[in-house]
Simulated assay, not measured.
Amino acid sequence: MEQTKVETAFQWLDKTTELIQQQMNVPYLDSLSITLSYMMGKETLEEQNDLLKQQLEKKAKELNIFQYEKEVLRKTIQLATLKGMKDATQQQHLITPDTVAMFIGYLSEKLIGKNDHVRLFDPACGTGNLLTAVVNRLSGNKQAYGSEVDPTLIQLALMNANVQQLDIEYFHQDSLRPFLLEPVDLVVSDLPVGYYPDDVQASQYELKAEEGHSYSHHLFIEQGIKYAKEGGYLVFVIPNFLFESEQSSQLNRFLHKHAHVIGLLQLPLSMFKLEKNAKSIFILQKKGRATNAPKEALMAQLPSFKNPVAMNKMLDKINQWFQSENGNDE
């Protein structure tokens, strides 16, 4: 039923976006942002001609997008974003796969439990797909924050949250610079992988490279820990080679000093075209006066998300782990 709703909503969203793309001669992702903005307020831009305005009014009558649940809308926007990113040449125009976003939502729920008030932050939120997936999964009152430097992506993130009617505050800035942000209970992020070009800013970090450019994925881990509360949790999507680089010993020392390693779950290799691009889910807890390392870290190689039997067995094992560690099996 949900799949049918997603397909119907996507067809409408895609055709409307293509209409704007053709008439205004702007890239698909920018056209998608205009479409989402139009859906929210039925406002048209000055540069839209009368024909396009009439066509948009006609399209608006075809479908009431607000009849759909938040998760249907999130998945619909994700599909349109993925289509736009196929033609995008910029490396940062990537999106966290839906199965991974939903799985991180499940893990976040297990870590946080039934909390009346949760503050969460994604310092590299992109289009907001991972952040909104986690927000939709958690119960209680949620204050969510995201940061993104890319103007196209943060505009999509804002529209994504608005269409789902989620209250998320976004920072449009270099995410490795300081934030006006109180510490949060949960940090989630699909870490950008590569070198950070600003050596002056990188010099403020413990994980700065001793020579040359620093790894942005290392600095994002440190930034996440900085803005987490004592005892707060962090769930990162990391490259599998994270602990094999020439700076890995420095990272290990930093993590031993500041965090407890809760778990490492390797994503199915079948998800990646090349093994060198494979990733894992890395779970940390920021050290505090009342925190302790787990009796045994949660380590596993996840089966294919397309194999429901194997996946259910894995979820049973993970649930048992949470139950045995701290009784957080709600």
Rank of each mutant, 00 (worst) to 15 (best):
L45V: 12
L45C: 13
E46G: 14
E47N: 15
Q48M: 15
N49P: 10
D50S: 10
D50V: 13
L51F: 14
L52M: 14
K53M: 11
Q54P: 02
Q55I: 08
L56C: 12
L56N: 07
K58S: 10
K59Y: 10
E62V: 09
L63C: 15
N64I: 09
N64E: 15
N64G: 09
I65Q: 10
I65Y: 13
F66K: 08
Q67W: 12
Y68S: 05
E69P: 07
E69V: 11
E71V: 14
E71D: 15
V72T: 14
L73E: 06
R74I: 00
A80W: 03
L82H: 05
M85E: 05
K86P: 09
T89L: 11
Q90F: 04
H93A: 01
H93Q: 09
I95A: 06
I95K: 02
I95F: 01
I95H: 00
I95N: 00
P97Q: 06
D98V: 03
D98W: 08
D98I: 05
T99K: 15
F103S: 00
G105N: 07
K110Y: 05
L111D: 01
G113K: 04
K114G: 13
N115P: 08
D116P: 13
R119C: 11
R119L: 12
L120P: 02
F121M: 07
D122S: 05
D122F: 00
P123C: 10
C125M: 05
G126V: 01
T127C: 12
N129L: 02
N129S: 06
L130S: 02
L130Y: 04
L131H: 01
L131N: 00
T132F: 04
T132P: 05
A133F: 04
V134N: 00
L138V: 00
L138E: 00
G140N: 06
K142S: 06
Q143H: 14
A144M: 01
P151R: 08
P151S: 10
T152E: 13
L153M: 13
